[in-house]
C-alpha cells in the first residue's frame, strides 16, 4: 500500500513551520505508524533530504514518548492505543493522512513533530511524588489498602504522561494528566502526608505553565491511550476543594 502524507515541517522552535506533502514508498500494511515514518525517512535520506523528526522510544505503548496528531486525533484513529501501536492497516491505500505535532502553548515545537513536554515534568516536580523513608522492604500487607482503592489507584497510575489529553482538548487543558497523578497518590495511604500540598502545588504548576481549563468536553478521555476516566477529573476537583478548605 501507499499513502500520501501531509506532514508539519518546522526546522526549530523559532522558525515558522508549514505542511509538506510526501508520497510514501510501498508499505507493508502491518507496519506501525512509526515504522511507516522510518521508511519514509530512509527514503528522504536516500534522496538527500532532511528526515522528519518525531518522538518515539519503547514502541510498545508503555513509555508515553510517541505523540503525533493523525487526521486531527492524537495517537491516530483507534481508542486506547498510542501512535506506536497504530498500524497502517487502519488506513486505506491511497489515503491522504495529515500528521501534526501536539498543539499547545505549554508544548512548544522543538522540531517538525517533536514538542517539548517539559511542562509536565514541572507539574510532577511540584508534587507528583511521595516522600518516604527508604530502607528494608516492609512486610507484605503491613499497610492495609482496600481492594477498590488499589484498583482505582492502578487505573490512575496507568497514565503514561504522553500529553494526548492536552493535544485533544479544545482548551489544551492538562486536567486529565494532573487528575490521574493526584488521584494515584490520594487513593493510597502512602500519599496521605502530602495530600493537600500536592494538589495545590500541582494545580499551581499547571496554571503557571499556561494550560487551559476543563470544559468537560470528554475529548481527553476519548483519545487517552490508557483510557483514563473523566471521573478522575471530578476527583481532582474534589481534592483541590478539600485542600483549600483544610487550608493546605
Amino acid at each position: 500500500m501507499k499513502v500520501r502524507l501531509k506532514i508539519w515541517r518546522q526546522p526549530n522552535a523559532a522558525a515558522p513551520g508549514r505542511f509538506e506533502t510526501y508520497d510514501t514508498p510501498d508499505l507493508n500494511p502491518n507496519m506501525s505508524f512509526l515504522e511507516m515514518l522510518d521508511v519514509v525517512n530512509e527514503d528522504l535520506t536516500a534522496r538527500g533530504q532532511e528526515p522528519v523528526a518525531f518522538d518515539h522510544d519503547c514502541r510498545e505503548g508503555i513509555c508515553g514518548t510517541c505523540s503525533l496528531v493523525i487526521n486531527g486525533k492524537p495517537h491516530g484513529p483507534h481508542r486506547g492505543v498510542a501512535t506506536c501501536q497504530t498500524y497502517m492497516r487502519s488506513f486505506k491505500d491511497g489515503d491522504t493522512i495529515v500528521v501534526e505535532p501536539f498543539r499547545a502553548r505549554p508544548f512548544p515545537v522543538i522540531k517538525d513533530l517533536i514538542v517539548s513536554r517539559k511542562a509536565f515534568d514541572k507539574i510532577m516536580q511540584a508534587g507528583g511524588f511521595i516522600s518516604v523513608r527508604t530502607g528494608a522492604a516492609p512486610d507484605a500487607n503491613s499497610l492495609p489498602v482496600p481492594k477498590p482503592a488499589a484498583d482505582e489507584a492502578m487505573d490512575a497510575a496507568a497514565c503514561i504522561g504522553c500529553g494526548a489529553c492536552v493535544a485533544a482538548c479544545k482548551n489544551a487543558s492538562a486536567m486529565l494528566f494532573v487528575s490521574a497523578k493526584v488521584s494515584q497518590f490520594a487513593l493510597l495511604p502512602q500519599g496521605q502526608p502530602e495530600r493537600e500540598r500536592r494538589v495545590l502545588r500541582m494545580v499551581q504548576a499547571m496554571d503557571e505553565a499556561g494550560f487551559g481549563a476543563c470544559t468537560v468536553t470528554g475529548s481527553c478521555e476519548a483519545v487517552c491511550p490508557k483510557n483514563i476516566s473523566l471521573d478522575f477529573i471530578a476527583r481532582l476537583n474534589r481534592e483541590y476543594a478539600r485542600a483549600l478548605l483544610k487550608g493546605g
Binding site: K73, V98, S219
Partner: peptide, 15 residues
C-alpha cells in the same frame, strides 16, 4: 491562548 494554532486535520475529537 493555550491553543495558539488550530489543527489542520480537525480537532476537539469526541467533544
Amino acid at each position: 491562548r493555550a491553543r495558539p494554532l488550530a489543527y489542520e486535520g480537525g480537532g476537539a475529537y469526541g467533544a
